[in-house]
């Protein structure tokens, strides 16, 4: 069943593509090479101008002390040392990792569970839309809603009162905001990944399940031996998508604490993205672009390393069926 060569299917984003083995014999291969420049060229130029050049500029700025305008002073790695020695940065970094790993794990466990339940469920299309919906809602809405729901006189406490709960937890206390944000992220993102995973599960031919039924496989065995191997490349893509997006999580934190943008969120809920933003654009003090870009470069390095490691860990030969 498993083929040694990788065949592009064109459905899901392709896994890391290895260089073609036999140096282009067929005419299709030659055609392909001819089209490489016109097709990849424009994107490459855009990518270079909009990403590579700014990234190099950022790397340069991170070695300087700069208020965003006016004179720049070269300070070497001082900004990096300063950022790493800042307990706030360390705290923000830990929060970023919590989002990436803890929220990520919960999301994927739930998404797989839902995929299994939804596969045989009547009206699964409707359900799929319903669970996908939170992903469409702007994070700002959740930030504002948090106030309505969790304020001391908010919905939750009002609902709890008839049950005799008068000393309800301080939901929006500074230390509780980050766990609430994590829960919100799970609620809003699970549907998105469920939808992608389900697309992968849906293309598994039904005869595999019939086979399972005949062999008397349990639901878990079916997951372990059929569904997981056959959706592995989809899952790998989702994991990379989550890694990239989780490290950039910003707006929900900005609006959840700190009064929907009127203030600054409590430091307990900062991530590296928020740390970077506050350092450069807090509006309350002289901008420190050097330190901000240093923090951004560290985040970039983190994403790159994690994505490479993830791709490596998830590397399997694609299974054709």
């Amino acid at each position: 069943m498993s083929a040694p060569t990788i065949k592009r299917t064109g459905r899901a984003p392709a896994p890391a593509q290895k260089p073609e083995r036999g140096p282009g014999g067929s005419s299709i291969d030659r055609q392909r090479r001819k089209l490489l420049v016109p097709f990849v060229g424009p994107a490459f130029v855009f990518y270079t101008i909009l990403f590579i050049v700014p990234a190099i500029a950022a790397a340069w700025i991170s070695l300087n002390e700069w208020a965003g305008s006016g004179p720049m002073t070269f300070v070497g790695f001082k900004n990096y040392i300063q950022v790493f020695q800042d307990p706030l940065f360390v705290k923000s970094f830990i929060n970023t990792l919590l989002l990436l790993f803890v929220v990520g794990a919960v999301i994927f466990i739930l998404a797989f569970a839902m995929t299994l339940v939804l596969r045989d469920m009547a009206g699964k299309k409707v359900v799929r839309n319903v669970i996908f919906f939170p992903h469409l809602v702007n994070a700002l809405v959740f930030g504002v809603l948090a106030g309505f729901i969790f304020n001391p006189g908010g919905m939750v406490n009002t609902l709890l009162k008839p049950f005799g709960v008068t000393e309800s937890p301080a939901w929006l206390a500074q230390d509780n905001i980050f766990p609430l944000i994590m829960a919100t992220m799970v609620a809003t993102t699970t549907g998105y990944f469920t939808t992608i995973l389900m697309a992968g599960v849906d293309r598994i031919p039904p005869y595999f399940y019939e086979d399972c039924a005949l062999a008397g496989a349990t639901a878990f065995q079916r997951l372990r031996y059929v569904i997981l191997p056959l959706t592995w490349d989809v899952f790998g893509t989702c994991a990379v998508l989550w890694t990239i997006s989780s490290i950039k999580i910003f707006e929900i934190i900005w609006v959840f604490g700190g009064s929907s943008g009127a203030g600054i969120p409590p430091t307990q809920s900062w991530t590296t993205a928020v740390y970077t933003y506050v350092t450069a654009f807090s509006g309350q003090s002289t901008p420190a672009y050097g330190a901000a870009t240093a923090s951004a470069i560290i985040s970039l390095a983190l994403v790159s390393v994690l994505v490479v490691l993830l791709r490596r860990a998830m590397r399997r030969d694609a299974i054709e069926f």
């Binding site: 392709a14 896994p15 909009l50 893509t237 994505v307």
Partner: peptide, 20 residues
Amino acid sequence: MSTTFRFSKTLAVLAGAALA
């Protein structure tokens, strides 16, 4: 890393459009 590349490509196009 073709996935990330594609992803970034989409972003690049979007950013270009926004810039325009």
